[in-house]
Each structure stands twice: as structure tokens, then as C-alpha cells.
Design a protein around this nucleic acid. Structure first.
Length: 418
RNA sequence: GCGGGUAUAGCUCAGAUGGUAGAGCACCAGAUUGUGGCUCUGGUUGUCGCGGGUUCGAUCCCCGUUGCUCGCCCCA
């Protein structure tokens, strides 16, 4: 039997109810913050991602689904959306019409990795991007948006880790000092970290190897290298968060994997997840537009992992009762009445009711069982008596009460119910 | 790319020192041929992941392989 591709999942109807619940919350909160939905293509030219995310990052190096199309052009399934949004903003000159843009998105993303808990090859992200402001108010808005989403979903048990990488200059200064420090301790570092020392030294800070952590405790702190501008930005942001009562933890070793971040970086972490404890994260990317060949444009963004949020919500029992109820099930005693039954079902659907009927010519008992299983509120019975008298028997499935009505008065009856 | 665990009915799982398999749930039908839920009765479903080896005989032992899963790396 042909099976789904490794790292992908089918979303069966039971799961869909949860997804719709989450999506409607995401849309509602996004709109409250005046963010507008944006949808860009599932695939882009590979170059867009390699230039933005960074050539040496794992995402670009080994995790992208890339292929040559029939025009011999290298195409990649999107591993994230920030680059696509930047591309769309530049391509349509959106900033000429509006100095500030607020977008949100929801959709599938693709990375070729070994699947494990909370990590798939096709996964889904919600994200928000605030483009055009260099001020910390925009960082704070993005963070508050995320906090509000978690609140609305009932997720309370999480940690907001926050750090500043500073601007290009202070980041470069720190990088040099860090390399010097790491080289002194190179032989004590893990193999992974020794490699990263060459390719992307800042990310050595992220290492989870115990030996590395001990060494890193002695490492220079990035926050001591922020210049005045960078420090002001960070402190102003923290002051806004304090004022809003948003709790955070400054973690000077938080360095996110994408190259384009500068100044603020942050991550939402939860213990409910396994090893993949980040349920969302983001940061400021003031240099991204420049890297992509556009004008320098300050921006800050955020992404949440939907599968991880669902894992947390399932574990904590945060989903409300999402059971769907059916308005009405129509049963017939004799299959020769099918045409009549169908015409009544159609009529009531046109009045806005959700109506189901039996398609297997089953016994009355079986039809009733199915109506019960579908949680139908009402049942209409059609038999010879009903046809003779031109009345319909309607039963309230919740209390078992049964009455007879003409078709017209049934329509009236259901109008009142709605 | 690397390491651990695991694979038996649609689902969750039992099983025997090797003699070709069960339970619960689900599903279907029935319990006064015009009435569901609770209860009761009956019923359907498996190449015991796949390939090879040992054996009179393998779902069980051995080897290989694949899927799933958890972890490393990295990320959401």
C-alpha cells in the first residue's frame, strides 16, 4: 500500500476541528492588532532563501526541498516565509503606498529533517511581520501579539526568552571577541561546536553539550558589547514589556539560527514539548531587505509552530468541546419514500439547516442509531402514515418528545430555533 | 547523516520453552417487522511489517531490510 511521505501527516476530520479552532483564534487576534493576511507561493526561486536565511545555515545547507524545474531553474519549497514576504513587499513596492506594513500568515512549510516529536518535514506556521519601523514599539507589538495568542488559547505555562544581538557593528565586535575566546578553548569544545566555530561562531552559544556549556559560562557576554544605539533599543523594548506586565527572561546565549537577525531575538519555550521546546520565536531583521537587493528596511517578525502548539494544548487539555452537532436527521420506514424524503431534506437545507439522511437503505433502528451518533438535535420520521396525512413526525432527540407538523409549520419551527 | 525503542484486527494492547492467534473499544445486525442513547445477544476483520536462515514445523529463535517513534544536530 502506498503510504504518506515520511514526516508528513494527514489531518483527519477529528483533527480539523482543532485546527479550525486555532486558526479562527489566530485570525481574530491578528485582526485586533490590525494585521492583514498575506499569502505567497508555496515555492520560490532557491536563491531567495539562500540569500536571506544564509548560505551556511542548516536550513539552506541540508534541509531545503530544492529541485530543478523544466526550465532548469532551481526552485525550493519554502522553509519559512519572512524572505517571501520581503520579496513581495519589494516586488509590489508596498512601502511606497504605506510606510508601515503589518502582515500575518498561516500555512505549510517544508524542511528535510529527521522527524521527531514536534518536528515534521511538512509543518505549519503562523507568523506576523511588522515592516517599516525601527523603533522598539514594533518589537513590543509583535511580542504582545504572540502573548495574546497564547492567552486566548489558554497556554499559560511558557517562558519568553529574549536577547539582543545588537546592530551590525556591535555584533561584529562581539563575534571577534567570541572567536578569540573559543579558539583558546577549542580542544575542549564538542566536535559540533568546533565545526560551528568555523561556519557560524555565534551559534556555538546555543550548544547543549555539557562540556560546552561549562566553557560558555566563561564566555564574553554579548550584552556587554552592545553600543549605545543597540543598548537603548533593547532597554526601551524591555521597558515597554515591563509596563505591559509581559514577563521575560533575558538570556544572553539565545542566538537564533537564521542569519538575518539583528537587535532583538526572542523565543517562546514550553516544557510540555519534548526536546523541541520552542513553540515560537522571532526577531528583528533590519538588514534583510538590503541583502535581497532592496532598500534598507527595518522590520521585526515572529513565527509560531502550529503542530507544537497543538501538542501543548492536547497535553494540557486546552481544547474546548468541538463536537459538531447536526440539526436534523430524516429517516424513512420504507425505501420507496426516498424521493419524498430527499425533497424535504433539500427544502430544509435551503432554510439553512444541516440535514443528513441514510444512504444505505438501512433499517429504522440503524438509521436512528446513526442519527444519535451524529448528535442530531431533531429527527423527522417519514412513513406511510405521514404520507397519507401529509404531516411530518418530528422528534426532539434530546428529550424524546414527538409531535406532528405540516411541512410549512416545520419550516417555521426551525426558523424559530435558529 | 548518527544512536535507542518498537512493529500482532480499523484503534489500544495481550499471547505461548517454537505446534499458523485472542481481549476491550469501534463497526454491522438483532432483542414486539413505526423509534436512538443504557443493557443484552450474535457477527465481520488479521499474509502476527517485509525477505531470508535454523527447524518436521516460526508470529515467537537468528540475520537482513523497511516503516513508525524518541533522541543527537538544527529548528517551529
Amino acid at each position: 500500500m502506498i503510504q504518506n511521505v515520511k514526516g508528513t501527516k494527514d489531518l483527519l476530520p477529528e483533527a480539523i476541528a482543532k485546527w479550525q479552532y486555532i486558526q479562527s483564534t489566530l485570525q481574530k487576534i491578528s485582526e485586533q492588532y490590525n494585521y492583514e493576511e498575506i499569502r505567497t507561493p508555496i515555492f520560490e526561486k532557491t536563491e531567495l532563501f539562500s540569500r536571506s536565511i544564509g548560505e551556511v545555515t542548516d536550513i539552506v545547507n541540508k534541509e531545503m526541498y530544492s529541485f530543478l524545474d523544466k526550465g532548469e531553474e532551481s526552485i525550493s519549497l519554502r522553509p519559512e516565509l519572512t524572505a517571501s514576504i520581503a520579496r513581495a513587499v519589494m516586488q509590489h513596492s508596498l512601502l511606497r503606498q504605506n510606510p508601515i506594513l503589518r502582515f500575518w500568515y498561516f500555512g505549510p512549510f517544508f524542511r528535510y529533517e529527521q522527524p521527531q516529536k514536534g518536528r515534521q518535514r511538512q509543518f505549519h506556521q503562523y507568523g506576523a511581520e511588522c515592516i517599516g519601523s525601527r523603533y522598539p514599539e514594533s518589537d513590543a507589538e509583535i511580542i504582545a501579539l504572540a502573548v495574546n495568542i497564547f492567552n486566548s488559547l489558554g497556554i499559560k505555562d511558557f517562558k519568553l526568552a529574549i536577547n539582543s544581538l545588537g546592530n551590525t557593528e556591535s555584533r561584529a565586535n562581539y563575534r571577534e571577541t567570541l572567536i578569540e575566546f573559543l579558539k583558546e578553548n577549542e580542544n575542549k569544545l564538542s566536535k559540533e561546536s568546533q565545526i560551528r566555530l568555523q561556519t557560524n561562531p555565534l551559534r556555538v552559544l546555543d550548544s547543549k553539550a555539557e562540556a560546552d556549556i561549562e566553557i560558555l559560562n566563561q564566555a564574553p557576554n554579548i550584552l556587554n558589547f552592545l553600543d549605545t544605539e543597540s543598548r537603548n533599543h533593547f532597554e526601551e523594548l524591555l521597558a515597554i514589556l515591563d509596563y505591559q506586565g509581559i514577563k521575560y527572561e533575558i538570556s544572553s546565549k539565545l542566538v537564533r539560527g537564521l542569519d538575518y537577525y539583528s537587535h532583538t531575538v526572542f523565543e517562546f519555550q514550553s516544557h510540555a514539548l519534548g526536546a523541541q521546546n520552542a513553540m515560537g520565536g522571532g526577531g528583528r531583521y533590519d538588514k534583510l531587505f538590503l541583502e535581497l537587493g532592496g532598500e534598507e528596511t527595518p522590520a521585526v517578525g515572529l513565527a509560531l509552530g502550529i503542530e507544537r502548539i497543538i501538542l501543548i494544548m492536547e497535553e494540557k487539555g486546552l481544547f474546548p468541546n468541538l463536537e459538531k452537532k447536526l440539526d436534523l436527521y430524516i429517516v424513512s420506514l420504507d425505501h420507496s419514500n426516498q424521493k419524498y424524503l430527499i425533497s424535504i431534506a433539500e427544502k430544509l437545507r435551503q432554510n439553512g439547516m444541516a440535514v443528513a439522511t441514510d444512504l444505505l437503505r438501512r433499517s429504522l433502528k440503524s438509521q436512528m442509531r446513526e442519527a444519535n451518533k451524529m448528535k442530531a438535535n431533531y429527527l423527522i420520521v417519514i412513513g406511510d402514515d405521514e404520507i397519507k396525512t401529509n404531516l411530518l413526525t418530528i422528534k426532539d432527540m434530546r428529550n424524546g418528545e414527538q409531535t406532528q407538523y405540516s411541512l410549512n409549520s416545520i419550516e417555521e419551527f426551525f426558523k424559530k430555533q435558529q
